[in-house]
């Protein structure tokens, strides 16, 4: 029977507390959870079979639920769903082999939580506002060189130039929002990751890693940002275990 690994935990001298906690929890398909320790690192696992493991939202949510419950009490690295190993011995050897890397990653996320922030916009309205402010819409021909003046392509070239300038304005605006977010979070010593222009309407997809006790301060900061940019919609998610701040591939 294979072992499903849920998370790697920094347990130190609290292995009894972890084991007591695991007694009251269930893994995928109601399986019992148990710990496999190597010094200060512990893998939380359950028995499963490859054939019996289905990738559906019920199992994925159960898997995430175990990780979330553990993350309330311990610093951990969440495993990706589907991390199976063939035996207890194989897991213990894997932990020994990767001990320094796992330990280092655990130290980086110690007492930290992940939060997500998505910034949505009404794409057409935002573009219209930016165009109005920049006067792109009122200034007509930009190209008037002799080569282009009488060209049948003049209108097309000007249209493309206008679109290009609008995109530049949009990116500048998104950069200014990112700068404002960064400034608001600077006092929290947050680790930030930003993706810009994910879709037409999702202009920012941000991830933050910050100390657990900074949650209230973060929510206040996002509230202030919403007031600062009333035309945008700020949606926060979390707290999450540090899924997006784990930079380790173990063998």
């Amino acid at each position: 029977m294979e072992k499903m690994i849920y998370a790697l935990l920094s347990v130190k001298k609290e292995s009894d507390r972890l084991d007591s906690m695991l007694i009251g929890m269930q893994g995928i398909s109601g399986a019992n959870l148990y710990s496999l320790p190597v010094d200060e690192i512990t893998a939380v696992v359950s028995d499963t079979t490859r054939a019996g493991l289905i990738t559906d939202s019920t199992n994925a949510i159960t898997f995430a639920g175990v990780i979330e419950a553990l993350s309330q009490e311990f610093t951990l690295l969440p495993m990706r769903f589907g991390s199976l190993m063939e035996s207890t011995g194989a897991i213990l050897k894997m932990l020994e082999r990767n001990y320094p890397d796992v330990q280092q990653n655990l130290q980086q996320v110690e007492d930290m939580l992940e939060f997500g922030l998505k910034v949505f916009c009404d794409s057409e309205k935002l573009r219209a506002d930016l165009m109005e402010k920049s006067e792109i819409g009122t200034k007509t021909t930009v190209l008037s060189t002799p080569e282009v003046k009488n060209s049948v392509y003049r209108d097309w070239v000007n249209k493309k130039l206008k679109e290009h300038r609008l995109e530049e304005l949009l990116l500048t605006h998104v950069d200014s929002v990112v700068a404002a977010i960064t400034e608001h979070l600077s006092r929290m010593n947050a680790v930030c990751k930003f993706k810009k222009m994910l879709t037409e309407t999702t202009i920012i997809d941000a991830l933050f890693l910050l100390k657990k006790d900074m949650k209230t301060e973060l929510m206040q900061a996002v509230g202030n940002l919403q007031k600062q940019y009333p035309g945008l919609n700020f949606v926060m998610t979390g707290p999450w275990p540090p899924y997006n701040f784990v930079e380790i591939t173990i063998k």
Binding site: E2, I5, L8, R50, A51, L53, I54, T55, S57, A60, I61, F63, A64, I67, L77, P78, M79, R80, F81, G82, S83, L84, M85, E86, A90, M94, N105, G116, T237, W240, Y243, N244, V246, I248, T249, I250, K251
Partner: peptide
Amino acid sequence: TILELLDRVLNKGVILTGDIVISVA
């Protein structure tokens, strides 16, 4: 929240190579 959760569980976290089962069922 559910979409964000599924994205994290299925696409993020520690990756195991070697004995990992990527293909399930």
